[in-house]
Design a protein around this nucleic acid. Structure first.
Lengths: 106, 106
DNA sequence: ATGTCAATTCAGAAGCATATAATATCATAA
DNA sequence: TTATGATATTATATGCTTCTGAATTGACAT
C-alpha cells in the first residue's frame, strides 16, 4: 500500500494521517471499546477487566497489548497484579465524543 | 473541559459497542482521513477529492462507499458530478478532536 | 443512437486483524 | 525449590480490508 506521504504537499492532518489512522484503529474494535469503557471509570486489573467484559484471557491480553502499542493505556504493577488505566488525553476526548453521540448523554 | 469520569458510566456504550466500532472503522484509515480532512473545508466533487489527495479513482470510490455506508458522508448530484459532504456531527466532532491533538490546532 | 465524462461496481490477490489453544513468564507463597 | 496465581506470548486458522485493473452505469451532448 502506498504511504499517505506520497500523496504530495498536504498540510496538517494529512502529513500525519498514517499515525492518526493507527491511533483510531486502536479504538476501532468492539472489545477494545468495552475495555476502555470500563477503564473510563477508573484503573482496573486484567482480572477485573475480564470479569467486567467477559472477554477471554488470551484475547484480553492481546487487546491490551494493542492499546499499549498505540499509547492509549498504560499500567502499573502491584505485586502480581497489573493495573491498567487510560493514558491518552486524545482517547479520553474521543470516548467523551462517542459517549455524547451514541450513548445519549448531554 | 469535562473529565472522563464526569462523562458518566458509559453503560450505554457497552450495548452499542459493535455499532460504535463500525463507525470508528469508517474513520480509521489514512486515505479516508485525508478525504474527510478535505471535506472538512467544504463540499467537494469526487474529481476534486482525487486531485486534492492523489488517491486513485477506483480506490476513492470504494472509500467514499464505505463512508456512505457508515453515514459519515452524503452527496448531492449536480449534472454528472457528485458533490460529497460530511453528514455526521459525530464525525465532525471526532475530526475536531484529532485536529486538536495531532495537528496542533486550537 | 452514439460517444464521452464522472463515477461506481466487480473480481482477484495480498496483507491485516481477531479468536482460540497451548505454552511461557514473572512474582510471590509455601 | 516447587507450586500457584496473574498475565503475556506464540502459533495458527479464518475472515476482513484495501489495492489494482477491467467492466459497467448514468447523465449529458451531438
Amino acid at each position: 500500500m502506498r504511504s499517505i506521504e506520497d500523496a504530495g504537499a498536504l498540510d496538517g492532518m494529512a502529513a500525519k494521517a498514517d499515525h492518526v489512522a493507527a491511533f483510531l484503529k486502536g479504538l476501532a474494535n468492539a472489545h477494545r471499546l468495552l475495555i476502555l469503557c470500563e477503564l473510563a471509570r477508573g484503573e482496573r486489573s486484567v482480572s477485573q477487566l475480564i470479569a467486567a467484559t467477559g472477554i477471554p484471557q488470551t484475547s484480553m491480553s492481546q487487546h491490551l497489548a494493542k492499546l499499549k502499542e498505540e499509547k492509549i493505556v498504560s499500567f502499573r504493577r502491584e505485586h502480581r497484579t497489573l493495573h491498567y488505566f487510560i493514558d491518552s488525553e486524545a482517547a479520553k476526548d474521543i470516548i467523551a465524543v462517542l459517549d455524547h453521540h451514541f450513548c445519549g448523554k448531554a
